[in-house]
């Protein structure tokens, strides 16, 4: 079970998942996860989040890399 008092940050392409205490802005969560903001989109369900969006505890967000090869 996830700790409901935390933010879950999923990085599906890296098969990684982090639990971080909130509330925190998307850009700060990305910095914590070591991800450069311009290489990803950040989503919450069907919503796209801007980098200054404040994420509350108990929320799950997905960090999706946009960099394609070739």
């Amino acid at each position: 079970m996830y700790n409901v008092g935390m933010i879950t940050v999923r990085l599906p392409q890296k098969k990684m998942e982090l639990e971080l205490p909130g509330p925190r802005r998307v850009m700060d969560l990305l910095a914590e996860a070591g991800v450069r903001p311009t290489t990803v989109i950040v989503t919450q369900g069907r919503r796209l989040l801007t980098k200054d969006h404040r994420v509350e505890d108990g929320t799950t967000i997905d960090v999706i890399s946009v960099v394609s090869g070739g």
Binding site: I41, S68, G70
Partner: peptide, 23 residues
């Protein structure tokens, strides 16, 4: 790339996010 990814996501286009394993 960020723009096409955002457009695809907001339009509800389901795409592969994994990379070609050979590249």
């Amino acid at each position: 790339e960020v723009e096409t990814a955002a457009y695809g996501f907001l339009k509800g286009i389901d795409y592969v996010t994994e990379e070609c394993p050979m590249s």
